[in-house]
Design a protein around this nucleic acid. Structure first.
Length: 701
DNA sequence: GGCAGGGTACTATAGACAGCATGTC
DNA sequence: CTATAGTACCCTGCC
């Protein structure tokens, strides 16, 4: 199918042709056949980089009215905003917590790009534009299975559809085990495919060699074995009708079960029995294997991503690769010396300096402790081929697009609470899916590092294994309370019956029936009444209606969780009766809510924070002996102390040093504090308490 | 006695969304 | 619990 044949107006068709898109990828063609251009609901469960954006554009451009594009990350929202803004004659608006590109009212736009929380918030605050939508595209719908954020996605989508039954819904998902359930929920046609524009092979590295799922075996430390099964030298990047395009369809991921569960086939294509530099099989630890896997690809002119478990390990691996002189083996454009300077310019923290040093050696690391400036430098230097390898925690797999020739997953387990857990298959697949850069690499390679004991597990679980099914988490009491309050506060529901009606259209209800929630909703309502968020108003003879109290209304509008609203209100009341109310007081209140991210409290620090809490007890709203979770409260005190020092003028460098947090972590704490303080101010006004320390703290943040 | 090197016990561990006012045609 | 890197600390052995 060609772009010319699509029901697009001339300027759009021109635009795509200019971008080199002539022939549609098979999943795109399938989406068109399913009716994306005719207003039909479509769920596309296809790999990343197989052309999802184009499907979204088709839906939005052919829709009979304004469109909404919902995505999970602010960074992705920005990326999409730019993509859509490049379309001729399309007015695009963006709406995320931190970014507002146009300043115009969202109502005037042809397309709005927003995070799901922002859409939820817009609905709660009565924004009118949501009712005029003709089309909603939801990116990464499989996140509906995520705790906390999943429920807001499904409730938001259900509400949008309820208020506007005619709206077209196009949902884009990673490959999951039950895409048909999502399609069924949305009354949508399902397009399912594992076609990719660049072939991907996945392997497991044990000792000195890698066994790939296509049956080939490659020695590690060989200058990277050649010769795989596919011959497509022709031009994997050509989207042109002429070239190898269409017939690549079944050559590639075609059959989903091409993978042989039993491990490597008998047909080894070993690079010739141990190359000259072949690494010794024995006594290689995972890091050495990972480093060799990276070095091989780099020596061959390709770039790598290496995924590890923790932040420090990402940094350590990057430094090690830098010391090994990794980049010297690569004909990279130029080592990222400028990027190094840029990274150093962001701040003078240890993290920043380490990153700068790595970048000047053509290596980088990436994790959530980096500030967004750092991350942007790393991402763009990598895209410009100034960096040979990024060592990263799983953040990178879910974020903006940074494809590499080879992906090395060194660690497949993660510390969770008190034990090591295997990573979900879906997550590992997303890491692996970053392999293969269209136009630059003949194929992508993903390698999981293991040993004799784990080999079979890795093959079964990740190489040949199916990703998990998406399951709703709406039944979680905390999520339910939030959305029940929202339904009442917006006036969509006045009885428990009507609340169930709001949830009728959710993914959860499809699985369990809305009735499955009845008991849980009743509990949530009771909780909200007890918390002073909701009131039962006995209006009629026998019945009552549910009404949000002013506090409940403000809580919902401010988009904080009910528990947060409750904690803030009680904190404010206590503060009003205190002699010594300071900025520390209000920080303690907002940090002691579930909406503030807690800060790790090390053993060493505990005693020190305890002393701090004691000596400042008259400024804190919580008496030590009456905390239900002392440990958690101490963490809040630590966060509050950091914020208080921050507004007192302590620098990032000093705070990072003193409290062992990443610079990016500090940024995110500050950002949340701004938001929670404004919520606190609004709540203070609704309950009629004046706490001057709130505006003080706000202005100094 | 002093110090280097090695063994050992202990500590720590991924990620990231949201409010609102304001001015302008 | 199913792990492992980094580190503070102690012990040992050598000078």
């Amino acid at each position: 199918m060609r772009v010319r044949e699509l029901p697009l107006s001339a300027p759009y068709a021109e635009h795509f042709l200019e971008q080199g898109i002539r022939e549609l990828y098979p999943p795109q063609a399938a989406a068109v056949d399913a009716g994306v251009c005719e207003g039909e609901n479509v769920v596309a469960a296809i790999p990343t980089a197989s052309g999802k954006t184009f499907i979204a554009e088709l839906a939005l451009l052919t829709a009979n009215g304004p469109g909404l594009y919902v995505c999970p990350l602010r960074a992705l929202a920005r990326e999409k905003y730019e993509t859509f803004a490049a379309l001729p004659g399309v007015d695009v608006g963006i709406s995320t917590g931190d970014f507002d590109a146009t300043g115009e009212a969202l109502a005037g736009n042809d397309v709005v790009v927003a995070t799901s929380e922002k859409v939820d918030s817009a609905i709660r605050n009565g924004a009118s534009w949501v009712d005029e939508l003709a089309c909603v595209v939801v990116d990464e719908v499989h996140l509906l299975g995520a705790e906390r954020r999943g429920p807001t996605l499904e409730v938001t989508l259900a509400t949008l559809r309820r208020r506007n039954p005619a709206v077209q819904v196009v949902a884009l998902s990673a490959t999951v085990d039950n895409p048909e359930a999502i399609a069924d929920w949305l009354d949508a046609a399902l397009v399912e495919s594992d076609w990719r524009p660049v072939d991907l092979r996945t392997g497991v590295a044990v000792g000195g060699e890698v066994e790939f799922d296509d049956g080939t075996t490659v020695g590690i430390g060989d200058a990277h074995g050649k010769a795989t099964t596919d011959g497509g030298e022709g031009g994997p990047n050509e989207v042109d009708g002429g070239g190898g395009g269409p017939n690549e369809v079944d050559g590639g991921g075609g059959g989903p079960n091409e993978v042989d569960g039993g491990g490597g086939g008998p047909n080894e294509v070993d690079g010739g029995g141990g190359g000259p530099n072949e690494v010794d099989d024995e006594d290689l630890d995972d890091t050495e294997i990972a480093a060799a896997l990276v070095a091989d690809t780099v020596a061959d002119g390709g770039q790598c991503l290496a995924f590890v478990r923790s932040r420090t390990e990402a940094v350590t691996l990057a430094q090690r690769l830098a010391d090994d002189g990794l980049a010297e083996r690569m004909d990279i454009e130029s080592v990222a010396a400028d990027a190094g300077d840029e990274a150093a310019d962001v701040d003078g923290t240890v993290t920043g300096r380490q990153l700068a040093d790595c970048l000047r050696s053509g290596v980088a690391f990436h994790h959530a402790g980096l500030r967004s400036g750092h991350r942007a430098v790393v991402e763009s230097a990598f895209r410009d081929r100034e960096v040979a390898c990024i060592c990263a925690t799983p953040t990178l797999a879910a974020g903006v697009n940074v494809p590499a020739r080879r992906v090395v997953v060194r660690d497949q387990k993660r510390y969770a609470g008190s034990a090591m857990e295997w990573l979900p298959t879906l997550e590992v697949h997303q890491m692996c899916g970053r392999a293969g850069r269209p136009g630059l690499d003949p194929h992508g390679e993903a390698v999981l590092v293991g040993d004799d004991d784990t080999r079979e597990t890795l093959v079964n679980r990740y190489v040949g294994g199916e990703p998990e099914a998406v399951e709703s988490t709406l039944a979680d009491p905390a999520s339910l309370r939030t959305h029940v309050l929202s339904a009442i506060a917006t006036g969509f529901a006045e009885t428990e019956e009507e609340i169930l009606g709001v949830f009728e259209g959710t993914f959860y209800a499809r699985e369990a029936g809305a009735g499955g929630l009845a008991d849980a909703v009743a509990v949530a309502v009771d909780d909200l009444v007890a918390a002073g968020m909701v009131r039962r108003e006995t209006g009629g003879v026998e019945d009552y209606r549910l009404v949000a109290t002013p506090v409940g209304e403000t809580t919902s509008k401010q988009y904080v969780r009910p528990e947060t609203g409750e904690r803030i209100v009680s904190g404010l009341r206590t503060a009003a009766g205190m002699l010594n109310t300071t900025t520390l007081t209000v920080f303690e209140v907002i940090c002691d809510t579930p909406d503030m991210q807690d800060t790790y409290l090390g053993n060493e620090e505990r005693a020190e924070i305890y002393r701090f809490a004691r000596s400042n007890a008259e400024q804190l709203t919580t008496a030590m002996h009456e905390t239900d979770d002392f440990e958690e409260w101490l963490e809040s005190v630590k966060t509050a102390r950091i914020l208080d020092e921050w507004i007192g003028g302590t620098t990032v460098e000093e705070l990072v040093e003193a409290y062992r947090i990443g610079p990016g972590d500090l940024d995110s704490r500050v950002e949340r504090a701004e938001w929670l303080l404004s919520a606190a101010e609004a709540l203070a006004e609704t309950v009629g308490v004046a706490v001057p320390a709130i505006p003080q703290a706000r202005s100094r943040l």
